[in-house]
């Protein structure tokens, strides 16, 4: 017996929900950022599952590969995003001595 496609998508959906929760409740910028990584991974998981399902239904290997290439791109962009995001946190921390999201309120009125 093999695992139906829906199960993978259910895991992805739940993971995305957990990531959303983290972004909303964590006050530390880094923790919120970690939660965003969770959401990205949920999306990656669903892309791979979609690609597999599409490939099985159309019998077209190219469809599967499209999905895999897309996931590779997402991982690369996530790496770039992490580098810049963390550098930003360091820069902010130097000036404000905190990365608590509730206290970074310069743009608020």
């Amino acid at each position: 017996m093999t695992v139906p496609i829906f199960w993978y998508l259910a895991v992805a959906a739940a993971l995305f929900g957990i990531g959303t929760l983290g972004v909303l409740i964590r006050r530390s910028a880094i923790m919120a950022f970690l939660s965003i990584e969770l959401m990205l991974n949920a999306v990656n998981l669903s892309i791979v599952a979609f690609a597999r399902s599409l490939g099985e239904r159309t019998g077209d290997l190219a469809a599967v590969l499209d999905g895999h290439v897309l996931v590779l791109m997402v991982i690369a962009v996530a790496a770039a995003e992490a580098a810049i995001g963390l550098a930003l946190f360091i820069a902010v921390y130097r000036r404000r001595r905190t990365i608590d999201l509730n206290r970074l309120n310069l743009m608020r009125w």
Binding site: T2, V3, P4, I5, F6, R52, S53, E56, R57
Partner: peptide, 10 residues
Amino acid sequence: FWGRFEGLPL
């Protein structure tokens, strides 16, 4: 997902 993918086997 349920509406679209439920019951599709791999």
